[in-house]
């Protein structure tokens, strides 16, 4: 028996990244890597710097120091050294961002189909019939009734809006997806379905995901690896079940032991 290929290609790296709003507020000296095909969870309590880190990694906020490196298929890009045009194009074409509140990620004034089609249109798709077909296909994939393609997102429930946002983000098959508490505002019953759907999509599309969540149960089900944040720093990193079952750092132990497990 041969060695399996153990080292997957690196997709995104943070090198000594810092962004502070005040003492211990923000992110400090962050080093991490995301490998292709992997879901990396960022966990920690509110105010630990999870969302700031997500913004720094996803090109939305320039760090005070350090580099964010993206390994594209054909080039290695220093996210904040390339021009804004290139960075925004990257976000629009190769990356995706799923907001906690679907209303932040959707255009509420236009139909579900237009929401799903927008990124395709931004890429130059100019065939209405094909846009519509893609919209219906994706609605089915995220378990929405394709008959409702012309309905406004406002007429959808919270869970349906979140699935619509995911369809809208994934329609262009992004290389890398950032998710900020994707199941955050949802009922427990809706969460489970969404989690299953996300797992399936991650596997089928070979997505690489950076997932911010304060919910360790969500992290266990979705993430392959975890980093634990506290006061803007990564205090521990490792395999998801290792962090949750054998946490080493005092804070990770506290975090894990504070969770109610049914």
């Amino acid at each position: 028996m041969k060695h399996p290929q153990l080292e997957p290609p690196t997709l995104l790296e943070a090198r000594d990244v810092s962004r502070l709003y005040g003492p211990d507020k923000g992110c400090q000296e962050i080093d991490l890597a995301l490998y292709r095909g992997e879901v990396l969870g960022i966990v920690g309590e509110s105010g630990s710097g999870k969302s700031t880190l997500l913004r720094l990694l996803s090109g939305l906020e320039r760090p005070d120091g350090g580099q964010v490196i993206y390994h594209a298929h054909d080039a290695t890009l220093d996210l904040y050294a390339i021009g804004e045009a290139r960075r925004r194009a990257l976000l629009r074409m190769e990356w995706g961002l799923v907001h906690q509140n679907p209303r932040d990620g959707l255009r509420l004034g236009v139909s579900a189909g237009a929401n799903i089609g927008e990124r395709l249109m931004a890429l130059g798709q100019r065939h209405y019939g094909q846009l519509r077909a893609a919209g219906q296909d994706w609605m089915a994939r995220v378990e929405l009734d394709a008959e409702r393609i012309d309905d406004a997102p406002n007429t959808f429930s919270g869970g349906m809006q979140q699935r619509l946002q995911i369809a809208r983000t994934l329609v262009t098959r992004p290389q890398l997806v950032f998710m900020d508490e994707p199941t955050g505002g949802l009922d427990v019953s809706v969460q489970a379905r969404l989690l299953d759907m996300l797992r399936t999509l991650v596997r089928e599309l070979g997505l690489s995901v950076i997932l911010v969540t304060h919910d360790l149960a969500v992290a266990r089900l979705l993430a392959h690896r975890l980093v634990v944040m506290r006061r803007g720093r990564i205090v521990e990193a490792g395999l998801t079940d290792q962090i949750l079952d054998d946490p080493q750092h005092a804070y990770s132990q506290l975090l894990v032991s504070s969770v109610l497990t049914p």
Binding site: A114, E118, Y128, R132
Partner: peptide
């Protein structure tokens, strides 16, 4: 900024919505 970067995808969103409606 959208003009500068030629981010014009949203213009077609409006036309799409017209046809859909």
């Amino acid at each position: 900024l959208m003009h500068a970067l030629e981010e014009y995808g949203v213009m077609h969103v409006k036309l799409y919505e017209d046809i859909a409606r």
